[in-house]
Every structure is written in structure tokens, then in C-alpha cells.
């Protein structure tokens, strides 16, 4: 186990709509076994000891599945390692003496709440618009009455793995939510359970996505490159196809 020190430039902002700025901090004697967020915990402990306001950032499960964390690290959502959430990034990815710039997700539809915390409730509203199978509790047929080929099921699972963190939006120069939205549309659109509402779903979810103020897709694939769950942009093409079919169906 090695120890390093790093310089930090961290975005501090008191509240929504307030001006923000990058503030310099130093993190000394950082074990390379620490996670990135544990390094920030240590910086915060130092601030709290001095009675200063701790840096606000979100995290919960700290094992890469809840989707709460997410920071732009040196300009890249979740930092330098591919297929990793911020909480699963470790300090062994940095060198002694590095300067690390840490910023929140930046998107019109994700307003900053404080420091590194943003409001991602737009994602919940996109799901509420149609990211479900309309099926009330009770009365379901036996789970095995509907065989689903393993390939289809696995492909649906690839898309269902989305953790709703918003990295895709943060990486996109248009702040588009196409990867997030298409992942749910593709998960349900591939499965037989999702067929009855397939075309109403795509229209409602895409319309909600637009209403939330997310941008458009210019097909550059930055979303896929930073997605911690490595979700494929192939779903976006499927989303477009289904949307067009829905328009033709009227």
C-alpha cells in the first residue's frame, strides 16, 4: 500500500441559482487503497474539525449499484477508469502530486442543489411517463407460462442494468438523456411483457424527456463511453425506430 498526496479543485456552490467557484484543497497521506469518495470523506473530516461547512456530495451504497454518486473528475464523469461509478474509483488510479478537478453533473435538467449535488428527479418523471408494465399486484400467471429465449432475456438485462446515475447526460455536450431513456424502452421493448404498451411507452417517455429540458442526440457516443454499466447506444436507434413506428400508427 502506497501513500500519495493530491491537490484538489472542488466546485463549491451554496445553493440552486447561487454563484459557484472552484476552491483549492489538499489531500495529504492518501492511501492508494482508498476509494475516491473515502478520500473526500477524509477532506471533509478535516473541514468539520475546523467547524467549516463540509463539501456536499452524494453517495449511498458505495458499491456501484444505487446510482447516487457521480462526479465529473478532471472533465470526465466518474474519472479515468471505464465502466466504473465514482464510488468504485480508487486512488490507485492517481499519481502523487496530481491535481484533480471535481465538478457536479452539468445539465439544464439537473440543476445544482449544493456543491456537487444535483437534482435528478427528471429521471423519475421519465420513468413515471411510461417506464413500466401496467400490471397491478396479484393475478399474475405462472412465471414459467411465458418462455423467453435466453438471448432476449440477456439482452433485456443488459439494458435493465442502468443505475440512473446520469453520467450519460453529464458526458453529452447536448446534455441529452437518450441513453437513459432508451435503456428502459429497450429493456421492456425486447420482452413479451412490454409489447402491449410498446408504442405508447416510447412516445410518452420521449415526450417527457424533451419536456424536462434534456438536449438532443448528435450520435457521438460519449454517453456509452462513460456509462458505468457500459450500456450500449444501440438502444437509441431502437428508440428512434419505435418512435417513428408509433408516429405512423398514429
Amino acid at each position: 500500500m502506497a501513500t500519495i498526496s493530491v491537490k484538489l479543485k472542488i466546485w463549491r456552490q451554496d445553493g440552486p441559482g447561487k454563484p459557484g467557484r472552484l476552491v483549492d484543497y489538499t489531500a495529504d497521506t492518501v492511501s492508494t487503497d482508498m476509494s475516491f469518495l473515502e478520500m473526500l470523506d477524509v477532506v471533509n473530516e478535516g473541514l468539520i474539525k475546523k467547524g467549516e461547512d463540509a463539501i456536499a456530495f452524494e453517495s449511498d451504497c458505495r458499491e456501484g449499484i444505487c446510482g447516487a454518486c457521480g462526479l465529473v473528475i478532471n472533465g470526465v464523469p466518474n474519472g479515468p477508469v471505464r465502466g466504473t461509478t465514482t464510488c468504485q474509483l480508487h486512488m490507485r488510479s492517481f499519481k502523487h502530486g496530481d491535481t484533480i478537478t471535481i465538478e457536479p453533473w452539468r445539465a439544464k435538467a439537473f440543476p445544482v442543489v449544493k456543491d456537487l449535488v444535483v437534482d435528478r428527479s427528471a429521471f423519475d418523471r421519465i420513468i413515471g411517463a411510461g417506464g413500466y408494465v401496467s400490471f397491478n399486484t396479484g393475478g399474475a400467471p405462472d412465471g414459467n407460462c411465458l418462455p423467453i429465449s435466453k438471448d432476449v432475456s440477456e439482452a433485456a438485462m443488459d439494458m435493465a442494468a442502468c443505475i440512473g446515475c446520469g453520467s450519460c447526460v453529464a458526458a453529452c455536450k447536448n446534455a441529452a438523456a437518450h441513453l437513459f431513456t432508451s435503456a428502459k424502452i429497450t429493456h421492456l421493448g425486447l420482452l413479451p411483457q412490454g409489447q402491449p404498451e410498446r408504442y405508447t411507452r416510447v412516445v410518452r417517455m420521449v415526450d417527457q424527456m424533451d419536456a424536462e429540458g434534456f438536449g438532443n442526440c448528435s450520435n457521438e457516443g460519449e454517453c456509452e463511453a462513460v456509462c458505468p454499466k457500459e450500456i450500449s447506444i444501440s438502444g437509441i436507434a431502437r428508440m428512434y425506430r419505435d418512435y417513428q413506428k408509433a408516429a405512423l400508427k398514429g
Binding site: A140, P141, G143, S149, K150, S153, A160, G194
Partner: peptide, 19 residues
């Protein structure tokens, strides 16, 4: 299990398509 399958939960399946 029936409830979750009906919601579209992508449980692991065997090659024959069953759970």
C-alpha cells in the same frame, strides 16, 4: 416470482426459455 416476471423483471433463464 409470478408478479415480478409479469412486471418484466429479467430473471436468468435456461436455454429453453424457462426460469
Amino acid at each position: 416470482i409470478d408478479q415480478c416476471v409479469a412486471q418484466g423483471v429479467p430473471f436468468a433463464r435456461e436455454y429453453g426459455g424457462l426460469l
